[in-house]
């Protein structure tokens, strides 16, 4: 039954699990920091950073990519790389001066910079 698989010690799994739970507590903790201490964009950035670390832990250890072949690395990475290409759509919204549909945050940044 055992094949060529890399068998990770169970201890690693439990450690990762505990780490994930701790990071979850951290995310919820950040939520309760008042806005005057941590403004919303910064809070979002922290929450996303924590989420990325959590995802990396899951991808790396639960999904065994750290033990995987180069090809596995490549295919695990390419999805996220292409997602960032897709996010290039947002450049349109951040640089579209004239024709913003509404007074959005991007629009605001744009108009602030164009006035001052």
């Amino acid at each position: 039954m055992s094949g060529h698989a890399h068998v990770t010690p169970v201890k690693v799994y439990f450690t990762v699990y505990v780490l994930l739970l701790m990071l979850l507590v951290a995310t919820v903790g950040v939520y309760f920091i008042p806005h005057n201490i941590l403004n919303p964009p910064a809070a979002l950035a922290v929450a996303m950073a924590i989420a990325i670390v959590k995802a990396a832990l899951v991808v790396g250890f639960f999904m065994q990519v750290v033990y995987g072949s180069k090809l596995t690395w490549l295919w695990a990475a390419i999805g996220f790389v292409w997602l960032s290409l897709l996010a290039g759509i947002m450049i349109d919204y951040s640089t579209r001066h004239m024709n913003m549909p509404d007074g959005s945050a991007f629009d605001r940044m744009q108009s602030q910079s164009s006035v001052e």
């Binding site: 290409l85 290039g88 450049i91 640089t95």
Partner: peptide, 17 residues
């Protein structure tokens, strides 16, 4: 994958993009 916007030159997308 980096040229999709050339279908949209007259829609009023960002001039830089």
């Amino acid at each position: 994958f980096l040229v999709w916007g050339h279908h949209m030159f007259v829609t009023g997308e960002s001039v830089y993009l």
